[in-house]
Design a protein around this nucleic acid. Structure first.
Length: 293
DNA sequence: TGAATTGTTATCGT
DNA sequence: AACGATAACAATTC
C-alpha cells in the first residue's frame, strides 16, 4: 500500500516529531545498559559506544538535520540516524518485543528504548565533538537565520539540477524525496532546473516553500512512518508525492512521474514548466492541448 | 527478478 | 582544485 510505502522515510518533520515525542521520556534518565544486535551500524564500535554511554544521563534530546541527538552529561553525544526504515519504540514490558530490534537502551526507570530497523540502514554514532560529528551537514532550513539570501548564496554559481542539490545534506539539510518534491511543486520550479538559473523571485518562492512544507509536515506530526501507531497525517496533504496520474490540487493537470538523478520524482507539468515560466490562461491552454492530441 | 528507498563515499570528468 | 555527475553500497521488501 501507498500508506506503508510512505511510512518508510523519515525526513526532517518525522525526525522532529520523534524527538519531541521522546524528549520527555529520556531526558534526565540514566542509561544503564546498551545492547546492539547489528554491530555494523554502530560507530566507532559497540564496545566503545557501550563504554561511553552506559552510566551516563541524557541531559537533552535534539535534532540536527535528520539525526536524533542524545546529549549526555559526560562523554559527548550519541547520534541516531533512522535512514529509510528505522523506528524508535518505547517499552516498559520487555517480554514482548516488536520486530527487527537492532539495538536497545535500558534506562534507570526500567523502560527500554528500542531501535527497530528492518533494512539495517540506520546508524548509531557516538562522539565527543558535536561540531565534528556534524561537520558535513549544511544549514538548518527552519532556523531564523536561514533567509532567502542564504538560499540565494547557496544556489549561486551552482550548475547542478535543483532537486539533487536540495537532497544533498551538505548543501541544506532536512529535505528528502517527499519534501523536496513538495517544495518544488509549491514553488513552481521544475526539478531539473539548474540552480544558478533560478531568478530572485523563484529563489524567494523556493525559500518560502521549503520552510512552509517542512513546518506543515511538523504540524501534522510528519508523514506517517509507523503504521501500527498512525500519528502522522501529512500524507493526506501531499500535492505531488505518490500521486502519479492524480490531478494536481492547483490546476487539475495529472501528476507526472519522472526520474531525476536516479530518484523517483513527481511533478505537475503545468505548475512546474521546464523553462520556469508558468503558463497563463489555463482554460485556453487546456483547450489547445486537447485539440492538438 | 529487479526496482525502490537514504545518505555516504569513491571515482571519473570538466 | 573545486565542482558535478554517477555509481556503488549498505539490506530488505514486494
Amino acid at each position: 500500500m501507498l500508506w506503508v510505502k510512505i511510512a518508510r522515510m523519515p525526513e526532517l518533520p518525522e525526525v522532529e516529531t520523534i524527538v519531541r515525542r521522546y524528549r520527555r521520556l529520556v531526558v534526565n534518565r540514566r542509561i544503564v545498559a546498551f545492547r546492539s544486535r547489528w554491530a555494523r551500524q554502530v560507530t566507532p564500535s559497540v564496545a566503545r559506544v557501550k563504554r561511553a554511554i552506559v552510566g551516563r544521563t541524557v541531559v537533552k534530546l535534539s535534532r540536527r538535520a535528520k539525526y536524533i541527538v542524545f546529549h549526555l552529561d559526560q562523554n559527548g553525544y550519541l547520534l541516531v540516524h533512522l535512514r529509510m526504515s528505522g523506528r524508535l519504540e518505547w517499552a516498559a514490558d520487555h517480554a514482548t518485543e516488536p520486530p527487527h530490534v537492532r539495538a536497545y537502551w535500558d534506562f534507570n526507570d526500567g523502560n527500554r528504548l528500542l531501535f527497530c530497523d528492518s533494512r539495517k540502514f540506520g546508524r548509531i554514532v557516538h562522539g565527543t565533538d558535536l561540531k565534528d560529528l556534524t561537520r558535513n551537514l549544511g544549514p538548518e532550513p527552519l532556523e531564523r537565520r536561514f533567509t532567502a539570501d542564504c538560499l540565494a548564496r547557496i544556489l549561486a554559481g551552482r550548475s547542478r539540477q535543483i532537486k539533487p542539490l536540495l537532497l544533498d545534506q551538505s548543501i541544506i539539510v532536512g529535505l528528502g524525496n517527499i519534501y523536496a518534491d513538495e517544495a518544488l511543486h509549491r514553488a513552481g520550479i521544475h526539478p531539473v532546473t539548474r540552480a544558478d538559473r533560478l531568478n530572485p523571485r523563484q529563489i524567494a518562492a523556493l525559500h518560502e516553500s521549503i520552510r512552509y512544507i517542512l513546518r506543515k509536515g511538523i504540524r501534522h506530526s510528519g508523514t506517517t512512518f509507523d503504521w501500527i501507531y498512525p500519528s502522522g497525517g501529512m500524507q493526506k496533504h501531499l500535492s505531488v508525492y505518490g500521486r502519479t496520474d492524480e490531478p494536481c490540487p492547483t490546476c487539475n493537470t495529472p501528476i507526472e512521474y519522472l526520474r531525476v538523478a536516479q530518484r523517483g520524482t513527481h511533478i505537475c507539468p503545468r505548475c512546474q514548466p521546464v523553462d520556469g515560466v508558468r503558463q497563463r490562461r489555463r482554460k485556453a491552454a487546456s483547450h489547445t492541448r486537447k485539440k492538438r492530441t
